[in-house]
Simulated assay, not measured.
Amino acid sequence: MEWDTPIEFAPVILMFKDPDRVFSIRTAMGAANALIREFPCDDGEEFLLAIKLCLDVVKGTADPEQLRAAIIRAAEEAGVTAIAVLH
């Protein structure tokens, strides 16, 4: 399992209440860091699913697009603005 493996997906921009806290997420490692370090809550069902999917993507047992969708749902659950960027 390699966290540094660049398994990328179309970016999701997270905007928190503090205007200086804006994050662009496009990898499993970036998602894990944002979820663990930045999210205002860590016990929601969507949050926990997103954390699990970070590991699953790195292990190769989940698709990066599943993680991207989970990040968006976790943001909605936590009241964080998520902007889904399309390529």
Rank of each mutant, 00 (worst) to 15 (best):
F16S: 00
A50V: 05
E46A: 05
L35I: 07
V22S: 03
L55Y: 14
I71W: 02
N33T: 08
A28Q: 02
C41A: 12
L35D: 05
E45W: 05
K52Q: 12
E45F: 09
F9E: 00
I25V: 14
L35C: 12
I51D: 09
M1Q: 13
T61D: 06
E77T: 06
R26L: 08
L86V: 05
V58G: 03
I71R: 07
E2G: 11
A50D: 06
D4M: 15
V80Q: 09
A74Y: 13
T61F: 02
V22F: 02
R21W: 00
A70T: 01
A84W: 01
C41D: 09
I13Q: 03
Q66Y: 03
E38K: 09
I51L: 08
D20C: 01
R37H: 11
A10I: 01
D43V: 09
A31M: 08
F16H: 00
I71A: 03
S24L: 09
A82Y: 11
T27C: 07
I51E: 12
W3L: 13
M29T: 10
I72L: 04
I71E: 07
K59C: 10
V57G: 01
R37C: 09
A78Y: 11
D18F: 01
E65Q: 08
L67K: 02
A34N: 08
G30N: 03
P11E: 03
L67M: 06
R26T: 11
D20H: 04
D42R: 14
A70G: 04
A69W: 10
A78G: 13
L49G: 02
E45G: 07
R21T: 00
D42Q: 14
F9K: 00
P64G: 11
E76P: 05
V58I: 06
F9H: 01
L53N: 05
F47D: 10
A62H: 04
K59Q: 09
F16C: 01
V22A: 08
C54I: 14
L49T: 12
A78E: 12
K52V: 14
C41V: 14
E65V: 01
R73F: 15
A50H: 05
V22T: 11
M1N: 07
G30L: 05
A78Q: 03
V57Y: 06
E77C: 11
C41Y: 04
L48G: 10
N33Q: 09
I36Y: 15
V85L: 08
R37P: 00
